[in-house]
Design a protein around this nucleic acid. Structure first.
Lengths: 207, 207
DNA sequence: TAGTTTGTTGATCACGTGATCAACTCATCG
DNA sequence: CGATGAGTTGATCACGTGATCAACAAACTA
């Protein structure tokens, strides 16, 4: 029998349901990976028939792509919010340290899966490129500001930003299979970034 | 023809079949990704019933893991074979250039998929860690030799090797979704590596 | 109250996955 | 020649995927 008086079912407005579905997809992706965002899994998580979820989305590929965009968009905003009010090099150091925080492993899995799934899911691939552009832009802006302020030697900000990102992503992927334990990741990365920027390591701040 | 005109079937020895299956799995993985290594896909590629493939392997997870190991093992051997007979810094430069060659995109997809699948496939995860260890060892050995010969300033080779690898892998993953086109990847990476090693960029050779 | 709208269900379809196994074919040996 | 055994088939199982849709129920409206 149904749970309460008549039925336990709750009717929500279309807009509420859409939000609920999006949240469920996000939670699932963070907890179990992007490939766990499945029609039935999302439905089960919000206690609803699978058909309902299908009714609200164009297709699963789109939901997955949207979920990815939502997660990494939030991630970037969070990382930016944590940057200290300090000179560019120190802000960049903080950005690297935050990005390499093991607590972000959930998001790293999402990133790596997105790169892999991006080969087949065109919508996702487009979102991935957008997200990477956004990240590079943030890093490049910091570098450019530092160059304008004189705290970083003049040069091309874009390629440097690109490679800082590559280092962060590479280390993240490595950590995903439990590789590189026991080694301090942050210090050598900061050394490498300092080399890329042309500034002393100490200028990147931190302890 | 040898085998009767009624059926085109060919009988092979168990060992031949095993090799044939392994090769089909490798080709499939390189052409369409590790997730395309499927019971039926492998069978179809060698023109055989799916049951035959299943008969020769413990399970698909194992075949996928073996296929990954085979591919990246060969890759590392190839890259090593291409290193010039020169001082350590130049060899490292060549290693980086070879690894970033766009022609290796096939293998990159395999790597990224392996990182992602490694979360669920324990056998694969183990192989991935082994492969990464092998890579790091090769790079670290080169660095250590350079340090011993005086062509690279003294320091800890392992962390440096680790980060050179992270940079290579990160850039590879980026390229997978068609990101970073039009930007010369090699030059800035060499600059970063030179910074890590503490040697002038010119010492990494190439051009 | 009766009628209409809108959210929701659950069965069902078509497909793809890995795995299993009795039956078959063919090469080889006695 | 007949028997033995290794290689192979193809149907089949159980499961999971995305998608569809007629029917149903709750809320709203006249």
């Amino acid at each position: 029998m149904p749970s309460s008086s008549t039925t336990g079912r709750v009717r929500r407005s279309a807009e509420e349901r859409r939000i609920e579905i999006g949240e469920a997809a996000r939670d699932l992706a963070l907890a179990e990976g992007l490939d766990a965002v499945t029609l039935r899994a999302v439905a089960a998580r919000i206690g609803v028939a699978s058909g309902l979820v299908a009714h609200y989305i164009p297709g699963m590929d789109d939901l997955v792509a949207d979920t990815f965009a939502e997660i990494v968009g939030t991630e970037l905003a969070e990382v930016r919010a944590l940057l200290p009010d300090a000179p560019a090099p120190e802000r960049l150091g903080a950005l690297v340290r935050t990005s390499l925080d093991p607590a972000r492993a959930e998001v790293t899995l999402v990133w790596v899966q997105a790169w892999a799934l991006g080969s087949r899911n065109a919508a996702l691939a487009a979102r991935v490129r957008e997200a990477m552009d956004a990240w590079r832009r943030v890093i490049a802006d910091e570098i450019s500001r530092g160059m304008a302020q004189g705290s970083i030697p003049e040069g091309e900000a874009e390629p440097i930003a690109w490679h800082v990102l590559a280092m962060i992503d590479g280390l993240g992927a490595h950590a995903l299979v439990g590789w590189g334990p026991g080694i301090d990741a942050v210090t050598p990365v900061l050394r490498a970034v300092a080399g890329l920027l042309g500034v002393p390591v100490a200028r990147l701040g931190g302890g």
